[in-house]
Design a protein around this nucleic acid. Structure first.
Lengths: 241, 241
DNA sequence: GTCTTCGCTTGATCCAGGTCAAGGCGATAC
DNA sequence: GTATCGCCTTGACCTGGATCAAGCGAAGAC
């Protein structure tokens, strides 16, 4: 009991409180007792960009929560062509409940902190805590909406619209460093190659479209990573949102 | 009680048994009592192709199950460009739980029979029947997988691969009329314009690719609608599945 | 019968974005 | 210092699929 109390008051709840603060975390749906139970099997990891968290060839035996950084969900054709089918920001949940395998690879796009736990523990808890299942259901529905939004982008938008849509997405989901009166700054969490794979374009086209936005005075780019958008409304109009 | 029994034994259960038979139906997750309760508010409709079942501009106040036919989920840009982001076959569930509005229009692609019921009734039942919530969760996850598969198609496949992927999809999900030793026949549930909107192409390109498959001896087309695929494996190879 | 409409195909031409190639620039290695 | 590497940009050229245009055939309308 002393030990449980110890765990409860020290490491895990702090970690999980950060999930709870936002909408998509798993931990917020659990009772303190369940948190302690889960904490026994929880590992908090910090990984480098490029680290594969879940491979499409493996069977899935663990779930994770993103605590910081960005994770990309990638699908690959036999000949190597790739498509990023989703970006997971903190505190998103990573995993495919109710299935042993997934055809998706989850890979750290930036430096990432994750909180991982075995599939079996959480699957057991879903039965015990309806609120938890409900939260996962809500995230699945949110992700479905996002995926379908992006299908419209991939199927029908021009390169210029896609790049503007991407910047708009990051401006909304990433951590803004500065924001005032429609002006907003942020760091791109993806390389040009990743952006291309997300937008169904080539790196050259992405680069050219960013240059165009720069020359048209909508954005500035520093060190290839740091973006300032001067007028979000104008960007939205370019994105055709 | 006599009336309830009456309803229970006549119209509704027969209707719902057809849902129950497959995996995605809502009704199979309900107790007989709940079925009767739901049946009070249920309307079974038969609609023409082109009928809008859910409009993206309205607030959603009803759910539906597809009993027969195909429903297309469409997203539209302000300038009229369209993308079909999903196809619903019997006994799929149509609706967006836990949200008042959706940015998607659901429209009958073929003649369709649906079983519609008010959102409020079902939302109440989700709380009472965990099995029902679970089923809806499973369908959401399935649809998410499908949407992400299609994102790969839209972002990275060529026109030839897209058309082959589409035929492969219909061969799997549609009702096959004949099937033996890799040969399979079916009716296309979509017009060329719909196929184009599903694949992110133009009708001309779809037409040309179908002609190419025909000339290459992989398929025959009768009356623009009826397709016979001679060798599903060869089609899969063209689709790069 | 003719006329119109709708869904589809086919051909000719165009262009957005892909491909190929060269070079810039900052970071790390030696 | 210089060399190498990774990431990005820019230019020149090419091509897959879009666009424009014509026509076909089946299904009503009259």
């Amino acid at each position: 009991m002393a030990i449980r109390q110890d765990i409860h008051n020290s490491e895990i709840p702090a970690l999980c409180r950060s999930c709870e603060a936002r909408h998509r975390g798993v931990c917020g749906a659990l009772t303190p007792e369940q948190l302690v139970e889960l904490s026994r099997h929880t590992t908090k990891r910090k990984v480098e960009p490029g680290t594969v968290l879940v491979s499409d060839s493996d069977t899935i035996d663990s779930y994770a929560n993103v605590l910081a950084g960005v994770v990309k969900l990638v699908k690959t054709l036999p000949d190597g062509r790739q498509q990023i089918v989703g970006l997971q920001f903190a505190p998103d949940f990573i995993g495919r409940p109710f299935k042993q395998e997934s055809s998706i690879t989850a890979e750290a796009a930036t430096a990432v902190r994750v909180c991982a736990f075995p599939k079996t523990s959480l699957d057991r808890m879903i039965d015990q805590a309806p609120e938890l299942g409900h939260r996962l259901h809500l995230q699945a529905l949110d992700e479905l909406d996002e995926a379908r939004d992006w299908m419209l982008t991939l199927g029908r938008k021009t390169a210029a619209e896609r790049v503007a849509s991407f910047l708009h997405l990051i401006a909304r989901h990433g951590d803004p460093e500065a924001e005032s009166a429609g002006e907003i700054s942020f760091d791109l969490p993806l390389t040009r190659a990743d952006i291309a794979d997300f937008l169904g374009l080539t790196i050259e086209t992405v680069s050219r479209q960013l240059t165009k936005l720069r020359k048209d005075g909508l954005i500035t780019v520093e060190n290839n990573r740091h973006i300032t958008v001067f007028d979000l409304d104008r960007l939205e109009r370019r994105a055709n949102i």
